[in-house]
Design a binder for these strands. Structure first.
Lengths: 343, 343
DNA sequence: TCGCACTTATGAATCGTTTCAATTTCTTGT
DNA sequence: ACAAGAAATTGAAACGATTCATAAGTGCGA
């Protein structure tokens, strides 16, 4: 059924080796031959079989990317950045989501290993990195995304989450809030823990400020809504006057719940800060103050480090790239609605 | 370096054929042998080489999915649905975005063809489907996603866009609007044309209603914002009193522009209807009335049809699955903000 | 005319898995 | 104890592209 190099070779009156050369290093083939073979390729609709190519070559020309949540615009942007950088160097990106389940994470890594991907970019769920060590030992370079490599044993691209958490909480304190709620989870996610850590640092530096932690089961709009209703129903003497959500999806859900409930006003009764600064944070009912992370850049840089590491081979230098977060202040912490927003 | 079936066979004292059987049909191998071989596999950290598998098998166990815009939550949801259904049957989904460029579309299809994917799911950009015919002729089943197959030559999963456009415009007319603007593009996208068609039908059925068309360069938030500013600056006698945007991203952008500009109120001065009903439509500054499409279901169903078609082989029955759209009315066309929204 | 260097082309070996016809081993009933 | 049939195992062939050592062809100066 399918046409192979052999068919092309026969039809063009050359050997298979020559066809392969026309495909991969035309400069070593006589121009006339190149033309003739290409004509036959065209005529027969020959399409290279990537599996055979890969089998012989040992490695594929794809990177595997494991994100925490494929439906979160933040990770979409990372993926986008990674794809575009990879494409520039002739690579493809296979993306999969672990969706807060380390079982899924394992499955994806197994899958990528079977595919002999040229490298794995991962925003790991667990603190246990042994699987990643094993992966690298078997010859697959690994780069951590949106997560630093504490001991510098992996290349990584991350944003300083402790600093981000700190600036979020500090901002709430600066606008006069004292009963702050941190909403985030699952705690397995390092990013969440770091943001909380930063917030705690800011709060404990102020005598009369308190930080109450609400654990979320996932970083989703739905979960945010659930918790938002819970908050809205608290008696006013138990209710926080500010919320710092571990990501924008949660923040959006919380905001929805508060609006639907209707008894509280944002930011008057409750101020709200999110994290990631996804596009939709600025266009929500009340535009949400959020900690910005350069998602597309993170994706691009991760692939960049990957390419370097793949090039260098065994004795690769591990690079840790850390971006600085930036607070985007909007109506949910006090800027009047309708006023020109910060960019 | 890497362990192969041969190594496992040697170590376990069996033939390679038996190792393969343990991997693929353990029921034909004696239980004791299965155990022994599996132990060796475990011990040596053997990982199947998918390329070799595929080469021998002729086809990969992945489907290729081409969407119009990977960062649009609507397509994210389709992807999500497709992934989850595919996984249930042991398949993987490779997703790529054409981003309004038929060049990208071609590149992706070429890539998928080289990979010998088990099938291609595509939301095609162009009306010219010859590439898809060729693809199918070469043995790759094709299913159209979010787009009907007019002549029933392909299996497809779509939503009745004409009906959707009609109900959107009809709703605007019902709430008393007469100067309606349709904002959408590029016109190459069939979905956009159909939605416009539906809107035109609704408008032309009412004597004093008019429909003005603004062509967008892309279906993005940014483009929506550009057009939104344009609208906001029109003198009141030239300004539409209602906008029907071809998707929610555009609608969101338009809304942002109007809010930033600050001279107009939604829905009082301009009512707004979007399309797709992405999660973020209901949590925007003014919750947006939108035409709902069951995105996750579309993805799942597309893979379902794909599986059937792949199973049936040559003489496959082409099925056209058409979902009905549903109007979700929210504040941007009049429901008081804060009131409980429709679900 | 010969020899040397250089350009082209060749085709067998290779990658690692799966398949399947052939062979060996095990059960059973008599 | 033996034949017949079932169960388990074997190993060579095949998938299709790439590589590389080798061979064939060309040009040119002596």
């Amino acid at each position: 059924m399918a046409i192979s190099v052999r068919d092309v070779a026969r039809e063009a009156g050359v050997s298979v080796g020559t066809v392969s050369n026309v495909l991969n290093r035309p400069e070593v083939v006589a121009p006339a031959t190149v033309t003739r073979v290409q004509a036959v390729i065209e005529r027969l609709d020959f399409v290279r079989n990537d599996a055979a190519r890969q089998l012989r070559g040992g490695r594929s020309r794809s990177f595997g990317l494991v994100v925490l949540d494929a439906r979160n615009p933040f990770f979409m942007d990372i993926t986008h950045g990674a794809q575009s950088r990879a494409l520039e160097s002739g690579y493809t990106v296979l993306m999969g989501a672990s969706d807060d389940s380390s079982h899924n994470e394992q499955r994806l890594l197994d899958l990528f290993e079977e595919q002999r991907v040229a490298g794995v970019l991962i925003s790991p769920l667990q603190t246990d990195l042994s699987r990643l060590w094993k992966l690298r030992d078997s010859g697959t370079p690994v780069v951590m995304v949106d997560r630093g490599s504490g001991d510098r044993s992996f290349s990584s691209v991350s944003v300083d989450d402790v600093a981000g958490g700190l600036m979020a909480a500090q901002h709430l304190i600066d606008i006069g809030r004292r009963r702050i709620a941190f909403i985030g989870g699952p705690v397995e996610i390092e990013q969440v823990r770091h943001r909380l850590e930063g917030a705690q640092a800011a709060v404990s530096a102020v005598g009369d400020a308190t930080l109450e932690v609400f654990t979320a089961r996932s970083l989703s709009v739905l979960e945010g809504r659930r918790i938002g209703f819970e908050l809205a129903q608290l008696p006013s003497n138990k209710r926080p006057d500010a919320v710092f959500a571990a990501n924008d999806l949660l923040a959006l859900g919380i905001l929805q719940a508060i609006m639907i409930d209707g008894t509280l006003r944002v930011p008057d009764d409750i101020a709200l800060v999110g994290y990631d600064d996804i596009d939709f944070a600025r266009s929500s009912i009340v535009p949400i103050t959020s900690v910005r992370q350069p998602a597309v850049e993170i994706g691009r840089t991760a692939v960049e480090l990957m390419l370097r590491e793949a090039q260098a081979g065994e004795d690769a230098v591990r690079e840790q790239f850390v971006f600085a977060p930036k607070l985007m202040v909007r109506a949910s912490t006090g800027i009047a609605p309708g006023a020109t927003e910060q960019h």
